[in-house]
Design a protein around this nucleic acid. Structure first.
Length: 158
DNA sequence: GCCAACGTTGGC
DNA sequence: GCCAACGTTGGC
């Protein structure tokens, strides 16, 4: 199976790339996704070794900040079963889970962050879902070319 | 199965 | 803080 390429969004006030850098094994489970399209990508399509751009939303400037890889494929999002969790969902049953997550590991923080406006101004990224109007998906596919272009813009040596 | 009301996301 | 865009809910 060919490697796939993704972008995940997080609000840095919630979980930033620095939080990921400090996490055990620089790995985290991507929990709390409560959108069916995003869930389907995680549950059905994200495979170990896929590359993932890490994007900070709701911050100034909104920007891509690093590169990660998938290290564990879909498993039930247990935070949906816990009524003390923000993303608790009583409709998700442990016997038939509605929500899934996967694990990502930090490969490298970008040398320079790549702002949303820089991505919008790059004609090579005009087809990227992220820069298109009204996109609210927190997990979305990108192409290999798009991912490589963003890495290039960041000036990061891998 | 339609669609109005409502809630959330996220750039600005 | 505003508000456009979008997803979900629920009455009918």
């Amino acid at each position: 199976m060919a490697k796939k390429y993704w972008l995940v969004k997080s609000e840095p006030s919630c979980f930033s790339i620095d939080d990921l850098a400090k996490a055990k094994k620089q790995t985290t489970h991507w929990d709390g996704v409560r959108n069916y399209q995003a869930r389907n990508f995680m549950r059905d399509d994200m495979k170990i070794g896929d590359l993932v751009l890490y994007y900070h939303s709701n911050t100034e400037p909104p920007s891509a900040v690093g590169l990660c890889e998938v290290v564990k494929e879909a498993y039930p999002d247990f935070t949906a079963f816990d009524d003390t969790e923000d993303h608790y969902d009583p409709k998700s049953d442990p016997k038939n889970p509605r929500w899934f997550m996967m694990d990502i590991k930090l490969i490298k923080k970008f040398k320079n962050i790549v702002s949303l406006s820089d991505m919008k101004n790059n004609p090579k990224l005009s087809e990227m879902k992220l820069v298109q109007r009204g996109n609210r998906l927190s997990v979305m596919p990108v192409t290999k070319k798009e991912l490589n272009e963003v890495v290039k813009m960041s000036g990061t040596k891998l």
